[in-house]
Nucleic acid binder design. Sequence first.
DNA 1: TAGTATATAGACTGGTCGGTCTACTATCAA
DNA 2: TTGATAGTAGACCGACCAGTCTATATACTA
Lengths: 204, 204
Amino acid sequence: MEHDNCDPASRPSTRDRLITVTCELLEFQGYHATGLNEILATSESPKGSLYHHFPNGKEELTIAAISKVGTAVLERIRDSLSPENGPAHATVPAFIRDISMNVERSGYRTGGPITTVALEAAASSKALRTACAEIYREWQLAVERALIASGSNQSEAESVATSIIARIEGGIIMARCERSRRPLDAIADELEQDLACRAKEKQK
Amino acid sequence: MEHDNCDPASRPSTRDRLITVTCELLEFQGYHATGLNEILATSESPKGSLYHHFPNGKEELTIAAISKVGTAVLERIRDSLSPENGPAHATVPAFIRDISMNVERSGYRTGGPITTVALEAAASSKALRTACAEIYREWQLAVERALIASGSNQSEAESVATSIIARIEGGIIMARCERSRRPLDAIADELEQDLACRAKEKQK
DNA sequence: TAGTATATAGACTGGTCGGTCTACTATCAA
DNA sequence: TTGATAGTAGACCGACCAGTCTATATACTA
């Protein structure tokens, strides 16, 4: 029952390779377009190992993969929006511009690591759907905390945080379609004004 | 070369049935999860007719389908945000609450008719990707016009309109995952304050 | 009526899908 | 050395995939 990395000097364990490769392929192409054989070939693992580590097959492997990227993104959110980096009305737009840069750098092939899965699987798999919902919730709560630390009240922070996550998800979709940073950069600009306006309002 | 509806008293033409059914299935399950055989069975059309009307197969049929729903949504946007219904800072939140209601009413199975396709196909099909980008652009322009009619300047209208479309797309994804109106309603609330704040700012 | 384009009909193909199955190897404890 | 468990290996399965093909029916025109 050893699920962590193996000897750090050698290649990662089969289990870790499977998860890592699945993360990447899901982000590029989504759930149904990513075949188990492709995952197997890319990670150089035999099919027997996959069903040894993930007895419930594709669904279980996918949940492991999106949980991993979900947590990684959560940590990026916490780091970027940490109060020591400044007030939320500065850190949030900067965070979105950073995402914009990364999406561009990937040739508009990545971004929104769980979005495609969320939409594709929402219909067919309850387990996948709730896994995605939980990740979105964690992200939202992290943003919420940053807003509260910058002076928002609970109720405002909740709706604004939800709206920020939604803006990012939607902006990534538009940017990938358009193959342009424009949508994400426009959202960063708009959000900067929005948050500034709210902060100013509060001073009165 | 007759592409419109046939005799209104009888059932729609094969071509129209194919497009309509494809729209629905794509919205429920996405591109790769929707098989041609399923489309054929649901619309009660033989395969020969599909390749007669859409020689390029699934891709061409999908483009026809998303163009249709894209245009239908565009008209809904124009109607809802028409200046005679009031200022944008009232009509836009109302529009989002209306979407929220429809998503709930569908059992959280529909909403964001082109989002899934946009993400799934962005990687593999340039034609589909640009078709989605064009639809997003049309939606954005319609919102932009409504904002300008309510007193925004061009530059602000563009970024705010982009951000509104993104919020809606992202909010629908979150609502479908969570099976709750909460995300979309929170976005409507947040947007209401955001637009009100901007309007107040402008008075000064 | 004959001829032509349009449209319907579905059998069929090669390929891929997710998943099962058996066999083999490595590790470690008794 | 033996036995049990964890892990690797890949052949194999039925189901389904998008797309091709030939045959036929229908509608309109010459």
